[in-house]
Design a protein around this nucleic acid. Sequence first.
DNA 1: TTTACTACTTTGCGTCACCAAGTAGCGTGG
DNA 2: CCACGCTACTTGGTGACGCAAAGTAGTAAA
Lengths: 110, 110
Amino acid sequence: MEESQLLRGVLEGCVLAIIARGETYGYEILTELTDSGFEGLMEGTLYPILTRLEKKGLISCRKEKSPYGPIRKYFSVTEAGAAYLASFRESYRRISVSADTILNREAESK
Amino acid sequence: MEESQLLRGVLEGCVLAIIARGETYGYEILTELTDSGFEGLMEGTLYPILTRLEKKGLISCRKEKSPYGPIRKYFSVTEAGAAYLASFRESYRRISVSADTILNREAESK
DNA sequence: TTTACTACTTTGCGTCACCAAGTAGCGTGG
DNA sequence: CCACGCTACTTGGTGACGCAAAGTAGTAAA
């Protein structure tokens, strides 16, 4: 599918935005993403994103037992993460404006 | 830059959309893209896209002399290309709706 | 003939979504 | 008690594609 290419980078920003709404953990993020329209998303896609975000210092991690399964890793955004998210939103907006301009332009006289 | 990741796949669709407006060639597409907001775009990025689109049979190519420089390769979309463009627009819209939902959601009670 | 603009090509690189498989804690039904 | 299903995180390999950098080449003006 060509779809996977369109998700590049977008996913990372979305994950950060979800965590920014309140401390949460991987599995919950996954269901939230699939509910929001990212339907085919696999665990093998999400968890590396979380690892990456943590490694970049954009989110921090806290472990806590789950009543239903293995240990959960709760994430929350750091200051750097909040700043990054803001700049991400701006980049995303700018690019989508450009793309919309081109994609939605009618076939004019040229 | 993280920007380059956000361009993934988007560029290919935009290039196709530009060609769909009327037969054109690489260098002109490049200036059109940079004018539309894709400012840092390099030739080494665009031309491989054109090669790929042609190899997939989404565009066809015709050579013609330029009054100002080397030979130009004029491209136009094929039937398959038009169909692909339509499905691309739909994919793009669906994904950007999902992303907007997440990115523009206020920090609610959760 | 040097500079500048037009115009296309090629190579190597790094990022990241995807797939597949694996590990593991917990609860329920047979 | 053990197989199943849900929760929850991990890992390794693959492939797509944007980017930087350099090269080739035609035209025309300085």
